[in-house]
């Protein structure tokens, strides 16, 4: 798409009225073209003002009084603020301190993880540094500072690392993206776990997750991520893109 072609679409782009393919192409162009970026900023400012006009379509309404309370509750409990569990029973389960009946196997797996953690933690710490302006990154940094944290490397079937999960001993966990491409419109990444032999949803991650918090329970043995329709589904409908084994740590 040429500069002029992009230019002709900036109005529609600012109103989210272009196709997903065009949106991606225009977004790339805008990042490199100051004049187009300025145009988009102007259009979006106008669009935001249009939202004030009550006569264009339906009348404006105010959110319910309970909405702020709901938001306040969400941000007060950051470990469930972003990921929205789809299975209600899973959210109610309490984290149980790990048992060690399979200590031998666990120790072997843990050893494999530990070998890679030295350099990997340095990589994660660098990522955290880049995200220090948001509170979730601070929480991740705090988790990484805990000696008992565990890092689960989530790899594709071909062995390419796509994401990782940092898990604290309390079960609070953080999903960190390492190269998942943005999904198209109407799609979202969804996080899954194997728990007691069953695949359960841990929630949707959004179309381009970078850092998302979620909850891990002692019964979970594997984390997986795939792409699902927007809003998530109850059971996986597409292949797993990346997965990693959870190893209980003291």
């Amino acid at each position: 798409m040429t500069h002029d072609e992009v230019r002709s679409l900036l109005g529609a782009y600012a109103l989210d009225a272009v196709d997903p393919r065009e949106q991606e192409e225009i977004a790339r162009h805008v990042e490199l073209c100051p004049s187009c970026l300025e145009q988009v900023i102007q259009h979006r400012e106008v669009a935001a003002l249009l939202a004030l006009d009550a006569d264009l379509d339906a009348p404006l309404r105010e959110p319910s009084d309970a909405l702020w309370a709901s938001i306040a509750t969400s941000i007060a409990a950051p470990d469930v603020a972003v990921v929205l569990p789809l299975q209600r029973h899973a959210r109610r389960r309490q984290f149980v301190k790990p048992t060690y009946s399979v200590l031998g196997a666990v120790a072997a797996a843990l050893l494999l993880v530990v070998v890679g953690l030295g350099t990997y933690n340095h990589h994660l710490s660098s990522q955290v540094h880049n995200l220090q302006t948001n509170s979730l990154s601070y929480q991740l940094e705090s988790a990484l500072a805990q000696p008992t944290h565990q890092t689960v490397l989530m790899r594709s079937p071909k062995g390419v690392q796509k994401a990782s999960a940092v898990i604290t001993k309390t079960g609070t966990a953080y999903f960190v993206d390492h190269g998942l491409a943005a999904t198209g419109h109407n799609k979202t990444y969804q996080l899954w776990a194997i728990s007691n032999g069953q695949v359960i949803s841990l929630g949707v991650l959004g179309s381009h997750p970078t850092l998302v918090s979620f909850k891990v329970e002692s019964t979970m043995s594997t984390l997986m991520v795939n792409v699902e329709p927007l809003g998530g589904v109850a059971s996986p409908t597409t292949p797993v893109l990346a997965q990693g084994a959870i190893v209980n740590v003291a």
Binding site: E45, A47, I75, A81, N134, S135
Partner: peptide
């Protein structure tokens, strides 16, 4: 609405004042 404000809480760095007003950002 809740998602937008919780997202701002979790990722405030996504807002760049050089790229317009906060109202414009939130509305977009």
């Amino acid at each position: 609405t809740q998602e937008i404000f919780v997202r701002l809480w979790n990722e405030p760095s996504r807002y760049d004042p050089e790229r317009g007003s906060l109202r414009s950002f939130l509305c977009a």
